[in-house]
Amino acid sequence: MTAVTYPRVIASEITKLHSLRSSRLSMLIALGLVVGLGVLVPWMSVTSWRNGSPTVGYDAVGRTLSGIYLAQIAFGVLGAMVITGEYATGSIRSTFAAVPRRLPVLWSKLGVFLVSTLVLGTLASVIAFFCGQAIFATKDVDAALGDPHVLRAVLGCGLFLAAMGALGLALGALLRNTAAAITTLSMVLFVVPIIVDLTPKGEEIGPYLPSAAGLTITQLDPGGPLSAWGGFGVLCAYVAATIALAAFLLVRRDA
């Protein structure tokens, strides 16, 4: 007798993610942004230099990974739409009729999306790193993967992007509406940091906000109160809390 099992729901979610042109396109755009800026920023830097430009302490790593600032939006929005797209089109009814316990759908979506974004985000970051360093190598300011913290920062970009995708997915599951989820994500990423910065406690609270905390893992020297992995842990805690609330509500609300 066939029954609904986790491997089966995961297979179904893989089919769903890869059978939509919009999700394939968003992922390609994210990849293109990371690699494209990884080439553009070093190229602009190098071509603007004259002889005797400063080279000591130059952050050649961060300048090759600047695409993650844009890609985080692409992944976050795609993560939200993985769920809100189902609510908007009504296909969530088919999904929950097939898997009426619902939670396997949420965990499978999350797992499939995390693996996809982690693989793609890491691949994009590694390509961007090597392309960018090849450009910096013409001026002898390039960094190598073996240099202190470089490998962690490059792979950290993949982790950061996957976590941002998961945050979008969690908000999508919680709010069940594309516009609401994307607006909330944008406010959390871009508006809240500005407002917090204007408060007297801004400098103390700012580093603990999701984006700032998560970015530490992509930086050679985070500098703030949080370590690279500690900051990433803070971002993961935000994601986990949002997902937990979404899961709690998912089985209780009418679909």
Binding site: T2, A3, V4, T5, R8, V9, A11, S12, E13, T15, K16, S19, S91, S94, T95, A98, V99
Partner: peptide, 12 residues
């Protein structure tokens, strides 16, 4: 693909 995704949840 719509039907396949549904079928896969049950191993159909």
């Amino acid at each position: 693909n719509h039907l396949l995704a549904l079928a896969q949840t049950h191993g159909i």
